[in-house]
Design a protein around this nucleic acid. Sequence first.
DNA 1: CTTCTACGGTATGAAAAAATACCAATGAGG
DNA 2: CCTCATTGGTATTTTTTCATACCGTAGAAG
Lengths: 240, 240
Amino acid sequence: MKETQLGSLLRPVRAGNAFEETVERLLQVVKLGVVPHGERLPPERDLAVHLGISRVTLREAIRSLQEAGYLDVRRGRYGGAFVIYRPPDPGGGDLAEAVNQMGAGDLADALTYRMAIECGAAQILATTTLDSAQRAMLLRRLSDVNEAAPTDYRRLDAAFHLSIAELTGSPLLAAACADARLRVTDLLNAIPVLGPNIAHAGAQHQAIVSAILAGDPDGASRAVAEHLEGTAALLRGFLA
Amino acid sequence: MKETQLGSLLRPVRAGNAFEETVERLLQVVKLGVVPHGERLPPERDLAVHLGISRVTLREAIRSLQEAGYLDVRRGRYGGAFVIYRPPDPGGGDLAEAVNQMGAGDLADALTYRMAIECGAAQILATTTLDSAQRAMLLRRLSDVNEAAPTDYRRLDAAFHLSIAELTGSPLLAAACADARLRVTDLLNAIPVLGPNIAHAGAQHQAIVSAILAGDPDGASRAVAEHLEGTAALLRGFLA
DNA sequence: CTTCTACGGTATGAAAAAATACCAATGAGG
DNA sequence: CCTCATTGGTATTTTTTCATACCGTAGAAG
């Protein structure tokens, strides 16, 4: 009984070594399309500072991503680490395989976590008074994703969801939201991007934004819950 | 515009060195009263495994807490690291000082984060069908905190809040909830535990549990929001 | 076609952290 | 009392990570 609480606090101080964590982080930046195909990552020195690691460790991580075919690293001025990864076929991959690569418990955990974070974020944003720039940003992200080509859909969808957390002004919340999304990226990428689904998701995105702008926390939260429950149910279905 | 999103993902891979993080973690276990006065921490070897660090690093952290007067370490069988820390006077400390030790931005961040996480967790728990053991646990935690002596109040309050996240069954969410609480522990400890406040909080705790058991997500979320908003407003008031 | 400079590439020594093995003390139980 | 299992204490080596300084390259600008 007290053991549960100890477990929540005495969890690992660090997920792995600096190298592995860095590879993972960069990989997700690439897979999420935050730095899209053809673009380059920030210079090594800057990146190392932002990630809070030494340049040596960062370089090891970059090299492993280079060898894995995600990055093209060029030297000289105007050089850098260019993303050559292309998001998987929007037609979808082997979802069952992707789901089973992750443990059943881990999947449920990730889905619950994401649901809580994103509902909470939307709810908070709906209670906040947004200035015009913030409203513009939100609407911009909404139209971006709802007008996206299939190839860019996942990337812009992620950007939209993340924007909600970022607009709350809480870096902690934004980080948690990014983290939650990262845990299901591979699974989402395996789901085909189909017209009807996009249209449905688009309406839900619109509902989320409307509730936020209307200052309706319950509505915003419920809209997010409905939106996420769709994919969550789909993913859970592949556990059996 | 894209810079914000990069910032959310290219944040530091690790908060500090292993030693500092370990000290911080253990300190919060002690301050939160998860291991109460007189009890002992798990054996070093177990602890090191749970925290994912080497025993050497763990021992350095323990020694610094020992020197700081939080722990009494005894050797031999039935020995261990015993907590000798006593929670601060429930009469409250210097709140203004505690608030100003933390940056204004950090405080707002922490409060927003906590609000989102706890609202989300309560909401999710309210949509879950709880078995009898889970209901019993929730009610137990509720009565624990609502019947607590002033000395134990903060500890049992923390346990109650954390239980909500734990009962969702998501370790990630539980960890996030613990983390959110830890960020405001020092501030809460500086707030005097007064009769009227306890009574008020008790009613709110009751409302939260009722909404959860009634399967009312919006109500649960709103109850949590109201509960947290009280202390949040108080803390924010000390920023000026 | 030279220069300038922002980038990646390399080398080296120090520090932090981990892995491993072993020592020492304590106190309950026989 | 003595035993012995469990716990903290110590020492040593290896691996990882960091800090710093410096080298090499490309390509735009002149």
